[in-house]
């Protein structure tokens, strides 16, 4: 009886032929592919996700400092839901630049494509505009709004939305 599973050969077969190595590599690749795309994202705990959040946008405004100014961030209506028209409001205090700020919406660690909210001045450092937070079928609900003030820099507000 032959030890090798290859019935056509009876001669000595090396322990690891190049094709077996390749087969192992492909198995590994398939395993890693599903591990990183399906299994690991599902195992991220609610605590891990909650740690990223720095803004409770459902219950009020959020404030961050950028150089010598405060940036107050708000979304309405509340609670903030995905796939609905939302009003984004930014209030800048302190010395401001000439250009209007804008907001880029995305998910932390996941490329979602360019989704920019252009803001218009309402006077007294208040800027607002409408935008939409889309729903990610993966079920992840944490979103990131990067507020950019031209010539000053940008800050990130991380919050969860309701699907």
């Amino acid at each position: 009886m032959l030890c090798s599973d290859d019935k056509t050969t009876s001669h000595f077969v090396p322990l690891r032929s190049p094709s077996r190595n390749m087969s192992l590599l492909i198995k590994l690749w398939i395993g890693m592919f599903f591990l990183f795309t399906i299994i690991l994202p599902m195992t991220a705990t609610a605590t891990d996700r909650a740690k990223m959040i720095n803004c409770d946008v459902h219950h009020g405004t959020c404030t961050q400092k950028l150089q010598d100014m405060d940036i107050i961030f708000d979304i309405s209506p509340k609670p903030v839901k995905a796939m609905t028209d939302l009003k984004f409001t930014i209030t800048l205090t302190g010395k401001q630049g000439a250009s209007e700020p804008f907001i880029d919406l995305g998910m932390p660690g996941m490329e979602m494509g360019p989704n920019r909210v252009f803001l218009k001045s309402n006077g007294k450092g208040i800027y607002s505009g409408t935008g939409i937070i889309v729903r990610c079928p993966s079920g992840k609900r944490i979103w990131k709004a990067t507020v950019t003030v031209p010539d000053k820099g940008s800050v990130e507000f991380i919050f969860d939305v309701i699907y």
Binding site: M110, G113, P114, N115
Partner: peptide, 13 residues
């Protein structure tokens, strides 16, 4: 027709 975040973003544009 599968729902997909980036597709939605492109549809907004």
């Amino acid at each position: 027709l599968l729902p997909c975040g980036p597709v939605y973003t492109a549809l907004i544009a």
